[in-house]
């Protein structure tokens, strides 16, 4: 894992470098593999339980393998009242996975997130950061179809 060593070298001296390093690892592998977390904890001399605590606290860090497209569903109150549950249901059915899981072909991951700041168009999802608002079941299916096409 030379890439990991490069990440360690780059952030070891930086204050708060561990979190930066987590981000770099996630950019590289789409999630933070267990082995990487153990090595970073050692390199940054942070006890494993604390490093794990940090990595599992931030919702934008993932400790589970994730797909190419991360679909995040806003679960904050405004979206909640405007039918986020319906959107969740459609996504789970269409992709045949539950929230928090990744499709077997590693294409999609479903996650909840806090308010993404587009409350005017609730309910909202983001796919790799790109927001989609005013969602209905039909619209969700349409969007998924676009992402499924080889680009």
């Amino acid at each position: 894992m030379d890439k990991l060593q490069a990440i360690v070298d780059q952030y070891q001296k930086v204050p708060g470098g561990l979190i930066e390093a987590f981000h770099a690892v996630q950019d590289e592998y789409a999630y933070i593999p267990e082995e990487a977390l153990r090595r970073l904890a050692k390199a940054f001399e942070v006890p494993l339980a604390r490093a794990y605590g940090i990595a599992s606290f931030y919702s934008y860090l993932s400790l589970k393998p994730r797909g190419q497209y991360i679909i995040r569903i806003c679960k904050s109150a405004p979206c909640h009242v405007k039918g986020a549950a319906e959107v969740v249901k459609t996504l789970e059915e269409e992709l045949a996975i539950r929230m928090g899981e990744t499709t077997p072909d590693q294409l999609f991951t479903l996650e909840f997130t806090e308010c993404v700041g587009v409350c005017a168009e609730t309910p909202v999802i983001t796919i790799n950061g790109e927001p989609y608002g005013d969602l209905t079941s039909a619209k969700v299916k349409e969007i998924l179809a676009q992402y499924r096409q080889p680009q």
């Binding site: 339980a49 794990y52 400790l63």
Partner: peptide, 16 residues
């Protein structure tokens, strides 16, 4: 012992 996850899911225990 450390904290794991966040919000309602938070629990106390070893890493992983």
């Amino acid at each position: 012992l450390g904290l794991r996850a966040r919000g309602y899911q938070t629990s106390v225990g070893p890493a992983f």
